[in-house]
Design a protein around this nucleic acid. Sequence first.
DNA 1: CTATTCGTTGGACATTATGCAACTCTTTTC
DNA 2: GAAAAGAGTTGCATAATGTCCAACGAATAG
Lengths: 283, 283
Amino acid sequence: MNARKAIQLAAKGDEMEHQATERLPPKDLSANDSPRKAIQSVETGVRVLRALMDCPRDGAHLRDVAEKSGLSRSQAHRYLLSFVNTGVVEQKVQNGRYALGEFSVRIGMAALARVEPVRIAGDNLASVLEELQTTGLLSVWGNYGPTVIRWIDGGLPLFTSLHVGSVLPLQASSNGILYLAHCSRALTRPVIAQERASGLVVSDDELERQIVQAREMGYATTQGTVVPGLSALSVPVLGSGNRLVATMSVLSRVQEKHFYSKPKIEKIRSAAMAASRAIGWQG
Amino acid sequence: MNARKAIQLAAKGDEMEHQATERLPPKDLSANDSPRKAIQSVETGVRVLRALMDCPRDGAHLRDVAEKSGLSRSQAHRYLLSFVNTGVVEQKVQNGRYALGEFSVRIGMAALARVEPVRIAGDNLASVLEELQTTGLLSVWGNYGPTVIRWIDGGLPLFTSLHVGSVLPLQASSNGILYLAHCSRALTRPVIAQERASGLVVSDDELERQIVQAREMGYATTQGTVVPGLSALSVPVLGSGNRLVATMSVLSRVQEKHFYSKPKIEKIRSAAMAASRAIGWQG
DNA sequence: CTATTCGTTGGACATTATGCAACTCTTTTC
DNA sequence: GAAAAGAGTTGCATAATGTCCAACGAATAG
């Protein structure tokens, strides 16, 4: 939690003008970044790495790294030098450009091995729910369709038949729409067929409309179609290769018509995106 | 041309001892490491990361990090603090242990995306999977063993607990057999030891038999031993000097007993060999 | 209860990062 | 073809910053 705040703080220092002559006042650095005494050079170094992360495949020019990280060229050069010395960054011999190196791969592999998608998604969901003071659930694909694997009570007292293990419908549920929007037909078709055989039918046109909308907006909603009296807003948690790993759903009562305000939606979405990034998704 | 000279100079300063209790004299730091002026704190920071990398997956105590990186506790604490502030490291709330964090995953994915062999092997695998209408994965050797670095859905709807970052066993997995067949004992022995300590035991004779077979046939298979209900066929991607760079695995359901027909196996093998040649293998 | 051990923090001092300017080499411009 | 601009790299004086020592509160053990 502290980390996230710190990241945002650090990110803030990026929107400065990148004129050659303008520069961050050192005071701001020491004042903003961390009240607790830490190593500024390390945090600066991470800014350099961050600048290297989104650069073309053939590497970035020193000048660009300097700009993106808000450092002077000579400063950026010194940091890159240290990273090159340690193998974190490689400097291509042909063109002199910098790019993440072999050691970065190894760090990432070690970090990846620690990743537990379900736990991470669950934690992120829990913190949003606490902030919004409501209840929600986490689902993943099971043998019979989207399956609730965590139910988190966050203040909103809800009495429903939903519980861990419940299978949610694909049609007419905000969860289901996300699976339809992100998973292959081969996966969803048999489930849809079975739902329709049991009498739950939403027209193909209507489904298609909702799918398109979910892809565009990045979330899906329902009002009372799964559980009478309950609205839900669901967001996807994606893994590497844009694979749908899980969905987060935030519940509310249908009476509270304006529960899902723009800022709330943004909070929920960014929680899901934070989880996505933490498990290897790259927008 | 100036760049080339500089790069060679930089490569020199990489040999550092990792003794536990010994501390590096400050003099050595400034004298040995880099003749060129760089940021010492960054290089120290990387030492801290290196210490975190070869720690158990559930995190390391501050004291262990301090020992492994050759820093005092207070010093290590300051560095970890900065890494936590930037999201590179996470400190678990429950036990206070430190482990690589979200940002490390992102750095790693960004670095992986730039690695040529991985891209080539991934592309080749993807096209085979599309042709065979099934799902598969790419793995490379990571800190804890064979690690999934790409998961490609090619039509066969599979949802398992496997994901990018999963560490596959050496024993009883088609992937693992390939690593046993192509990598040195020194690399695999500790992992085998740990697997057996956790209860996964395949007899040495049986392993040896599978290894010999894998070397002869050029591929390895499993049925349901890693993930219940899933069969896998794995082929090696080799680099120069017959080094095992990655493995490709093609999955299917165990029910489809005759999925891996001769022509299919040939397709998969030739995809791997094409990738191998593209990255410098000369069989 | 005392005695350790662990994570964490404060403060003085000396090491180290900073910013400027200069230099080399390449690329662009006229 | 020479000049000018831009790239990466480096020296140096100064001031900021990391280091070390010691200490504190909280666990844990004996």
